[in-house]
Design a protein around this nucleic acid. Structure first.
Lengths: 230, 230
DNA sequence: CGATCGCTTGATTCCGATCAACAGGAGTGG
DNA sequence: CCACTCCTGTTGATCGGAATCAAGCGATCG
């Protein structure tokens, strides 16, 4: 359990307000399983697991945010997904090693489940097995949607991203981004400069307003949706 | 069952040589299930299923090739995967509708399985359930790998694509591409012109040789692998 | 107060898209 | 059989959007 520096502790204090602690997207696998989870904390930028490491655990975000990513030899990074409170990640069915890495974006608390226990429960309880399969299927859908995003223009990608983030968390026009511009850039396949410029552009177009760099207010969802090109 | 024109039949006749009819990647769900499959034929460019259509069937490619894709409002198309003989596709766990469309690239024959029958078998047989889950998980890994490809340069994408195609089918240096340049372009997030130019460039660099536009010989796998940047 | 970090903004470059023309092969019809 | 068209792929010229290079700004912290 990492010691938090005052700096990190301060940052962490804003986390609870970022996301509703129990998102609508929460799908408890089963009450039995949920009780098996052990709480665990990771501090900002700490690695939760790395690519090719043994996949012995399944995780569920309680608070904070997590990035899942892959890197090329030369360091280019593609963030495949952000996980927010209520989301589960890290399960590798039929694969004993992780195919991606996962890191804490902010200070994070997760519930950790033993893979072996989860699989054992799945063989006994068909409902759990079904839930796990559906979890993987949802991830697959997300990944396919994200591929479609990666052929869009910069403005379309940023608009899509903002609406996606708004769709998670509390359903208001106030969106708080737990991740840095670099994370957003690596998620959208752009550079930080292009992300920054595009956000500024959307602000000038009165589609959004920025109270701080991490706090966005959606001013014109229709305009954003149009810019999405989906 | 579509009537084949002589032209299409001619094209089809080259199909068997394109891929080994029973690829290594074939994972029969179970002998029980494999017997439930009904053969079905689709002619070139015929739709197998469309986005948002009810997902009542699971498919297994016997011969030919299939493209799975999504489109944006304005027609931009992202091909998420190509399915070759031995590959299964079309299953939507926890979702009664297809999230993507699927079309025959060449004349295709598939085995068709009733979704309800597959799911019923899965509830009875835990091994089948496990296989289905792993199938979805493999697709997810593929999708995550493809996202990583979509941040690469044009040359890196084409080199990756050629090596990927070489890795499927018979393990020789002769690769036959069942799909058009437009399909490749939409798979790699490029234009046909860029794909064509890049292939020409790889040829000039003696990394590959073209006997015809659809037949590529890998001349220098090491060079290709280096260009891959993975 | 100076240093660091995350973000924004500006100037310029460059890769791939776009626009355009053409080539080769296959099928069609005279 | 040959002329014609259609289709697919290649090649060339130019354009444009995002990357790169570079500077500056405002927080937060030591």
């Amino acid at each position: 359990m990492p010691m938090l520096t005052p700096a990190l502790a301060a940052r962490r204090s804003e986390s609870p307000s970022i996301h509703t602690p129990c998102a609508v997207s929460t799908y408890p696998l089963s009450d039995t399983l949920d009780m098996m989870g052990a709480p665990m904390a990771f501090s900002r930028n700490e690695e939760i697991y790395g690519e090719a490491e043994p996949a012995d655990y399944l995780y569920k975000v309680v608070s904070g945010a997590v990035r899942m990513y892959k890197v090329l030899k030369d360091g280019r990074r593609q963030i495949g997904a952000f996980y927010l409170p209520g989301d589960m990640f890290g399960l590798e069915p039929g694969n004993d090693e992780h195919a991606s890495s996962a890191e804490a974006i902010s200070d994070v608390t997760v519930l950790v489940f033993k893979r072996s226990a989860v699989l054992a429960l799945a063989t006994r309880d068909a409902t759990v097995a079904r839930r796990l399969w559906e979890m993987t299927a949802r991830e697959l859908h997300r990944a396919n949607d994200h591929m479609l995003l990666l052929i869009k223009s910069a403005e379309e990608r940023v608009a899509s991203f903002l609406l996606e983030m708004a769709g998670r968390g509390s359903e208001t026009d106030a969106v708080t981004l737990p991740m840095s511009r670099q994370d957003i850039a690596d998620f959208l396949g752009l550079t930080i400069e292009t992300v920054s410029r595009t956000i500024t552009h959307l602000e000038h177009a009165h589609a959004i307003a920025l109270t701080s760099s991490r706090r966005v207010a959606l001013r014109n969802r229709a305009m954003l949706a149009r810019l999405t090109a989906s």
